[in-house]
Simulated assay, not measured.
Amino acid sequence: MDGLNTEHYLRSIKLLRDEIDSFDQYPFFLPIFRELDELEFHPQVTFIVGENGTGKSTLLEAIAIAWGFNPEGGTRNFNFSTRTSHSQLHECIRLIRGIRKPKNEFFLRAETFYNLSTQIDELQVSHYYGGKSLHEQSHGEAFFATFMNKFKGKGLYLLDEPEAALSPMRQMAMILRMHDLADQQSQFIIATHSPILMGYPGATILQIANNRIEAIAYEETEHYIIMKEFINNREKMLDVLIE
Rank of each mutant, 00 (worst) to 15 (best):
R97F: 03
N77A: 13
F113Q: 06
T204P: 02
A66L: 06
R100N: 13
Q185T: 14
E40L: 06
H90Y: 15
H139V: 11
I175V: 13
L134M: 04
S12M: 03
P31F: 08
Y200C: 11
K154D: 11
D180A: 14
L10T: 01
L156C: 01
P195H: 02
P27Q: 05
I96C: 03
A64L: 04
F106C: 01
E40T: 11
K152Y: 11
G130C: 01
H139N: 15
P201R: 15
D2R: 05
L30D: 00
M227A: 12
G131D: 10
P43F: 13
Q119P: 04
N79A: 10
Q137K: 15
Q25M: 11
W67S: 13
R17P: 07
G74V: 07
I213Q: 01
N77T: 15
K236P: 03
E19H: 15
L108S: 06
D160F: 05
Q184H: 10
S22K: 01
T6I: 10
Q25S: 13
R100K: 13
N52P: 03
G55I: 03
R100E: 12
E51F: 07
N233P: 08
A145H: 01
E38K: 11
F107W: 09
R109Y: 00
H193N: 13
N210K: 15
M169Y: 10
L176N: 10
P162L: 08
F151P: 00
D160Y: 02
R170F: 14
A164T: 14
P31L: 00
N5E: 12
F33M: 08
L158M: 06
N233I: 06
F33K: 04
D121Y: 08
F80V: 03
Y224N: 04
Q124N: 15
P102T: 03
L89T: 06
E19R: 15
I242C: 09
L39T: 00
T75W: 09
F23E: 08
N79C: 04
E214S: 08
G140R: 08
L59I: 10
L238A: 11
I216G: 05
L16Y: 03
D180H: 11
R177H: 15
M1G: 14
Y129G: 00
P201N: 12
I190L: 02
K14Y: 01
S85G: 13
K154W: 08
Q25G: 00
H8L: 10
F69T: 09
F188R: 09
F23R: 02
E235N: 13
S133F: 08
T192C: 09
F41A: 06
F143L: 10
G68E: 09
L158I: 08
E7L: 13
F106Q: 05
L4K: 11
N115P: 05
L15H: 00
D2T: 06
S194Y: 05
F144G: 02
I99C: 13
R100Y: 15
P102M: 09
I48G: 02
I175R: 09
S22R: 11
D239P: 07
F28C: 03
L123C: 10
A62K: 07
S167G: 05
A215I: 01
D18L: 02
T204A: 09
A110P: 10
K236G: 07
K103C: 12
L89A: 07
